[in-house]
């Protein structure tokens, strides 16, 4: 068990290292020079050369990589090329927004979706199950902006509740103000992640429900509820936690459309901005942050899957 965990941790570290190589050298291959971008086209050659030296850009690539990695590990993500602001400063506020939206989405969306999916597996091919399948497939097919538009139409224009646009950030807002501002983006995201979670949890539980030990439980006279939560769920946990982890990672890193639609500043739009302004340093910092998010979440998912499997927990 312990060796398995250590191995899994090692794989995570190797992944982070490999991604750091790709991010660093990938951004280096792109045309353009950081010093030139920062000083603008009008800068003199001497100024550019001086800045290059100050930023360490005249040193060999490997040394640059080493310094960058070292700084990253100590929490220094460098200075933005477009605004002379430390990247950490740029990220801080948006990180708070993203974290607020994604954690609230996860807290509401994940349990509800899982419960709906498991209910579907409990009553396969029932009316409820058919409706659930229809709705969740429709949600997968509907683009995020479409779902968002419908929600805005319904809540803001018809019912007159909530805001269609988020004004500012999380900072300095009271509870009800927060709900009014972030209610709709969170609801939209809940719908987005719900479809996948519902379908996966339904499939995972249904798969287990077809196994002989479930039939045995039925023949022992075990009630349906207990069959689900005691006999089936534990064995279906592996695939479910993986999908949950992937969806959580998406909430942190990939919420571009929803962020733009509701106009709240989050991490996903920040990286788009970085690409537009060719802010290499920002892209590198955010890229690593996203990578870490994925690796840590998948690590937690895998550990949860190990823990739920007695064959791994207690080898012969």
């Amino acid at each position: 068990m312990l060796s398995l965990l250590i191995k899994r941790l090692g794989i995570g570290l190797v992944t982070v290292f490999a991604v750091s190589l790709i991010i660093f050298f990938g951004t280096k291959i792109l045309p353009g020079d950081a010093a030139q971008i920062r000083l603008g086209q009008a800068a003199t050659a001497e100024n550019v050369a001086a800045l290059r030296e100050r930023l360490g850009l005249d040193q060999p690539l490997l040394v640059q990589y080493w310094n960058w990695l070292k700084n990253f590990l100590s929490g220094d993500l460098g200075v933005s090329l477009s605004g002379d602001v430390p990247i950490t400063e740029l990220i801080k506020d948006r990180y708070r927004n993203t974290l607020f939206v994604s954690s609230l989405t996860a807290l509401i969306g994940v349990p509800i979706s899982l419960a709906l999916g498991i209910l579907g597996a409990m009553f396969p091919r029932s009316i409820y199950d058919r409706v659930l399948t229809f709705v969740s497939v429709s949600l997968v097919a509907a683009p995020e902006f479409f779902t968002a538009t419908l929600l805005v139409l319904f809540f803001v224009f018809w019912l007159g509740i909530g805001n269609a646009v988020v004004v500012g950030s999380v900072e300095g807002k009271g509870f009800f103000e927060l709900i009014a501002h972030f209610g709709l983006p969170i609801t939209t995201l809940c719908f987005v992640i719900a479809s996948q979670l519902i379908r996966m949890s339904r499939a995972a539980v249904l798969n287990v429900m077809n196994s002989p030990y479930i039939e045995m439980a039925i023949l022992k006279g075990v009630p349906r509820n207990r069959i689900i939560y005691r006999h089936a769920l534990l064995n279906a946990l592996g695939p479910i936690v993986n999908v949950v982890a992937l969806n959580l990672a998406y909430l942190v890193t990939g919420v571009i459309v929803v962020e733009v639609y509701f106009g709240y500043p989050g991490l996903a739009t920040l990286i788009v901005q970085g690409v537009q302004t060719r802010d290499f340093v920002l892209i590198q910092g955010l890229g690593m942050l996203f990578c870490l998010t994925y690796v840590v979440l998948m690590l937690i998912a895998d550990i949860a899957a190990y823990m739920s499997n007695p064959r791994l927990r207690h080898p012969k």
Partner: peptide, 11 residues
């Protein structure tokens, strides 16, 4: 049942 290995819940 025929197969105890399949009939016991592994968890």
């Amino acid at each position: 049942a025929q197969s105890a290995a399949a009939t016991f819940n592994p968890s």
